[in-house]
């Protein structure tokens, strides 16, 4: 019975998070076009619904009914498998993110944490592990298409993901030293009590933050680091041969990854669900939802940053990308670790 209650509660939490993520993906597809349009003095989608707000539904229906083409000479098994390998790791990472305060409720004698699906002691490493698995979707999709542009896109993705994954891993070590834990829940809890306790400001993790944000833009293959799909050079890179729902899977995986890295960034550097002021303004249960609201605001700030960067910066050349990753980001991240370690050792 206890097991059943626990499983039921977990499934309910997972369902809520998954639906929220999918809705956010739909919102983002429209938001990206709208934000880019406004930044370029255009109006963006205006035809479907008032101010074009029903555009994601129209896009979804279109993709669902599109012809599903598998090119002759493509590797059928891997061609079908690649979008799934891309999508699943993008969603799995959400299991360890704390969406709200770490509170406990008794439900039929079982302790349930309503805002946390799972608090594992290696949370952040778990996210990094599945992020690296997600790269297989891109690489295999590029190879299985039997198309030179796809293959080049896949190979670029392989090199880029390995280079920038390293920087993501090193950039967060400063935060891990400060928190003394790999659990995202503990890291978020340690930043309670106002914005001057956040790792970005109180922990002075400015270098780590900048390296993390830049590297995660590169890891999600977004402009200005979208070399794997570089429209002007490689048609659409590894997605060239994909159509219909398979294409939609890759598309959803990209946006889900954006949401995930935004969640991780706000937990690691901006205090997660903590408000910029100590405690909460609203009393009781409403206070918990105030935390969730702050978390949402921070995540959307990062998502807006993704669009902003896309509208502002031109695409890097491939050798610039590699040189930037290995010769600028990596030394900065290493320096951040050394400095943080020394400061923490001296102050304690």
């Amino acid at each position: 019975m206890d097991m059943l209650v626990f499983a039921g509660a977990s499934v309910a939490k997972i369902a809520v998070v998954m639906v929220t993520v999918l809705i956010t993906v739909a919102i983002l597809t429209l938001a990206e076009r709208k934000v880019l349009s406004w930044m370029q003095d255009r109006m963006g989608p205006m035809e479907v619904g008032p101010y074009g707000i029903l555009q994601p539904i129209a896009d979804g229906i279109k993709l669902f009914f599109k012809e599903d083409i598998i090119p002759a000479g493509a590797n059928w098994v891997l061609f079908s498998l690649a979008p799934i390998i891309s999508l699943i790791p993008a969603f799995i990472g959400f299991a360890v993110v704390p969406y709200g305060p770490n509170i406990e409720y008794e439900l039929y004698g079982v302790t349930i944490k309503p805002f946390i699906i799972s608090d594992i002691n290696i949370g952040i490493l778990y996210v990094l592990a599945f992020a690296s698995i997600g790269a297989y979707g891109v690489i295999l999709g590029g190879w299985a298409s039997n198309n030179k542009y796809s293959l080049l896109g896949g190979l670029r993705a392989a090199a880029q993901v390995i280079s920038y994954e390293l920087n993501v891993g090193l950039a967060i070590i400063g935060v891990l030293i400060l928190a003394g834990s790999l659990s995202l829940v503990t890291i978020a809890e340690k930043q309670a009590g106002g914005f001057w306790h956040w790792n970005l400001i109180g922990g002075l993790q400015i270098i780590g933050f900048v390296v993390y944000v830049i590297s995660s833009v590169a890891e999600t293959n977004r402009l200005p680091f979208d070399l794997p799909e570089a429209d002007s050079e490689l048609v659409a890179g590894w997605m060239t041969e994909y159509s219909g729902m398979r294409f939609a899977f890759f598309f959803m995986a990209e946006y889900a990854n954006m949401i995930l890295v935004s969640c991780i960034a706000s937990v690691l550097f901006l205090g997660g669900y903590h408000a910029p002021y100590p405690g909460t303004l609203l009393p009781g249960i409403l206070g918990y939802f105030e935390g969730v609201a702050w978390f949402t605001v921070k995540v959307y700030f990062f998502l807006f940053l993704f669009f902003w960067i896309r509208a502002t910066l031109p695409r890097l050349r491939y050798d610039q990308l590699m040189r930037f990753g290995w010769k600028v980001m990596l030394p900065l991240a290493l320096a951040n670790i050394v400095i943080t370690a020394i400061v923490v050792y001296v102050l304690r």
Binding site: L125, L128, I133, I139, W143, A158, I162
Partner: peptide
């Protein structure tokens, strides 16, 4: 041994095997 499990995924699956595939595809 969750730590070893995750490190195995990050290092072997996430880095080394991707480089193998990189070579095999070429």
């Amino acid at each position: 041994a969750e730590f070893v499990a995750v490190v195995q995924i990050i290092i072997y699956a996430g880095a080394i095997l991707i480089l193998y595939l990189f070579v095999l595809m070429l």
